[in-house]
């Protein structure tokens, strides 16, 4: 469990706080989607979840973040790295090897995973992400979606409790973006891995996450399940957050008392809603 109390952070050489007064508890097994305008503090927040802030990035740090009861300010970031794995936004730069297999081996070797265990782990994560055929490929020859899978696989090999991803689908087309979300959902359901993902594609968040968090100027402007959005649709618009068209539609229908069910998050849901209205 990650517990964030009164978290605030001001980057060195900056006058404004990137994060301010953040309070949140991320339970084991949760799937949290974070969205917000650029400069809202999303990336900074992900850095606070595994000790990169305050350990590796300079600035003024307020409040406390604890991972399984351990304070991130009091232990080396490496101690949390195996518990909370992070896939950074710049996918090319975070790779450390030129071949897929070596990329996955890197963390395993460094953290001293016994050598007799390594082979089995590499096989397993490659299989879990369906990229067995990429094992000997040069990373530079992979597509964006494949690179994301490799990055997730190399985190997964360390058997983390939490995976944090910063806009992994930013440069992917809709098909590959959805695939990443499907993979994460499977890991979340079957292995109980907690997933925290920063994402601009609100449609995907609505469809897959358990909780949604909207950041605005370093504050939490909304936190709740995707269905809770219905009461905050106006807030979302003011904050510049897009909501899926079908959600907007259902919110309108509910407001006008044409429909009395729940807010819809997918086209399938909306179809059922319209059929009910048509009788």
């Amino acid at each position: 469990m990650i517990s964030v109390k009164d978290l605030g952070f001001v980057y060195q050489n900056s006058k404004t706080a990137a994060l301010d007064g953040i309070n949140i508890e991320i339970e084991d097994g949760d799937f949290v989607g974070i969205t917000g305008t650029s400069g809202a503090g999303k990336t900074t927040f992900t850095f606070a979840l595994n000790g990169i802030i305050p350990q590796k990035i300079k600035g003024d740090f307020y409040g406390a973040v604890t991972i399984n009861g351990k304070d991130t300010a009091e232990h080396h970031a490496e101690e949390f790295a195996r518990t909370v794995g992070e896939v950074f936004q710049d996918i090319d730069s975070q790779m450390v090897a030129s071949v897929v297999e070596d990329e996955i081996l890197f963390g395993l070797e460094n953290f001293g995973v016994p050598h007799e265990e390594i082979e089995e782990r590499v096989d397993r994560v490659l299989k879990e992400l369906g990229i067995e055929d990429l094992r000997d490929r040069e990373i530079s020859s992979l597509s964006g979606g494949q690179k994301q899978k490799v990055a997730i696989a190399s985190m997964l090999a360390l058997e983390p409790e939490v995976i944090v991803l910063d806009e992994p689908t930013g440069e992917l087309d809709p098909e590959s973006s959805r695939e990443i979300f499907r993979i994460l959902t499977r890991l979340n359901r079957e292995k109980g891995i907690t997933v925290v993902i920063v994402e601009q594609k609100i449609m995907l968040l609505c469809e897959y996450v358990k909780h949604m968090m909207v950041l605005d100027k370093g504050h939490i402007a909304f936190y709740g399940t995707p269905r809770d959005m219905v009461s905050s649709i106006e807030t979302f618009k003011e904050l510049g957050i897009n909501v899926p068209r079908v959600t907007e539609l259902s919110a309108g229908l509910i407001r006008e008392k044409i429909y009395d069910g729940e807010v819809t998050l997918t086209v399938d849901d909306a179809e059922k809603m319209v059929r009910r209205i048509l009788g």
């Binding site: 305008t37 650029s38 510049g240």
Partner: peptide, 10 residues
């Protein structure tokens, strides 16, 4: 609009 939030995008 890649990498832009909705507000900037609009």
């Amino acid at each position: 609009t890649t990498g832009l939030d909705y507000l900037e995008c609009i």
